[in-house]
């Protein structure tokens, strides 16, 4: 699947907050149909990177290329218009709304100027079953009654529904139990098999090594290693994350 060009490419992206240089000349690529893990210790710049990609912050320097063309992401709406969806740690679902309502929140289908619940429910059900999330008989329950993994599923399905080309998942398995984590990882794999580019931010190297195709490692605002995951082993990744270099690896 690596034959095509990258879907998203950051070239020499820097972000400066006052005296703090949060990102320093970061290069980063994400390919369609692949899961790219973005690793790094706390404060390495993972959040700044994804906020730049999702249009929350404009880079101070550098270029963002989307499908090979330079783009300016000035707001989340710009990113969304391109097909970039970010699924945040706290998920951003409304507890009081049901699954269908959440999946269509902000993108409701209308009929005669009223909400077209039937069409939305059918479409939501199809998307969920395409992702093998088979809560079919209960997609009308409020999200408040769902488990963490199910909420992640709804958030992912929402991204798929909006025809996202790039899905950024911020710590999707934090706070999840074993079974729920498995469910979410399976979902990530299915999402990438459908041709979607996925950027996975995770502290959990087990998750990274289980689903990621590529890895990019940030250290103090700089990209210190990037490449196919097969070129890395756990110890090398840990070395890069903690010290910014690895004596053991030839990769990078």
């Amino acid at each position: 699947m690596t034959d095509g060009g990258p879907l998203l490419e950051l070239r020499g992206v820097s972000k400066v907050f006052g005296a703090v240089r949060a990102l320093n000349g970061v290069d980063f690529t994400a390919y369609p149909g692949q899961v790219t893990a973005l690793a790094g210790d706390n404060g390495a710049g993972k959040s700044v990177t994804i906020k730049t990609i999702s249009g929350l912050w404009e880079p101070t320097e550098g270029q963002i290329l989307w499908e090979g063309r330079p783009v300016h992401l000035r707001s989340p709406n710009d990113a969304e218009a391109l097909g970039i969806t970010t699924i945040y740690q706290d998920l951003a679902l409304c507890d009081n709304l049901d699954i269908v309502q959440n999946m269509f929140l902000g993108h409701e289908r209308m009929r005669h100027h009223l909400l077209d619940e039937t069409t939305m429910e059918l479409a939501a059900r199809k998307t969920l079953s395409d992702l093998h999330v088979t809560t079919v008989r209960s997609i009308r329950q409020p999200v408040a009654s769902l488990s963490g993994g199910q909420r992640q599923s709804v958030a992912v399905a929402k991204a798929v529904m909006q025809a996202a080309k790039l899905v950024i998942m911020d710590e999707p398995t934090a706070a999840l139990g074993v079974a729920q984590t498995r469910m979410v990882l399976d979902l990530i794999r299915r999402l990438s098999h459908q041709g979607t580019a996925v950027i996975l931010i995770s502290h959990n190297l087990n998750d990274v090594f289980e689903v990621a195709d590529r890895i990019s490692i940030l250290y103090l605002g700089q990209m210190v290693a990037e490449g196919p995951l097969a070129d890395f082993d756990r110890q090398v990744v840990v070395d890069y994350m903690t010290t910014g270099e690895s004596s053991r690896a030839a990769a990078g």
């Binding site: 999330v133 209960s138 009654s145 963490g148 706070a175 999840l176 074993v178």
Partner: peptide, 25 residues
């Protein structure tokens, strides 16, 4: 223990505390 219906993993006996009991659902 997995009401969302993703493949069942019999090994995972430890249903997380935040998992949904099917009954509740």
């Amino acid at each position: 223990e997995d009401p969302a219906g993703v493949e069942l993993h019999p090994a995972d006996e430890s249903t997380p505390a935040n998992a949904l009991a099917p009954d509740e659902l």
